[in-house]
Amino acid sequence: MRFLIVDDSSTMRRIIINTLNKLGHKDCYEAANGREGLERLAAATVDMIITDWNMPEMTGVEFIRAVRASESTRGLPVLMVTTNAAQDDIVEAMRAGVNNYVVKPFTPDTIREKIESALEG
């Protein structure tokens, strides 16, 4: 599987990629914000998006809305990884089109379960 990791923190991108590598997923693209994420999606084919919420230029929610609005990417499963875990946050993300939600801090098992769940959904 090929993943696109969208996060303005290079640390968090690295943590997520390390986690995916541990889970056997070696193909990962990176983007530092939603706008870069859309550029990546236009240039490469991916199987799943993992995105942060709070990012400069284009937030995770704005990015997901753009993904869902595009014919070529609207069916991609999307995981959101964020510290925004209040009930209202989760509702907003789900309305924007997130398939599943990972709250930081997280364990590798949580990421694996959420990926499997997003793929089933």
Partner: peptide, 29 residues
């Protein structure tokens, strides 16, 4: 960046925990 992310996670987790008791705060980068 790593220490900023650790602090972001601490503040974000605190925000989430407090959001069950009172209106949620907005946190900065």
């Amino acid at each position: 960046d790593a220490i900023g992310e650790v602090t972001n996670m601490i503040a974000g987790t605190l925000r989430t925990r407090m959001a069950s008791l009172e209106p949620a705060w907005a946190i900065a980068v």
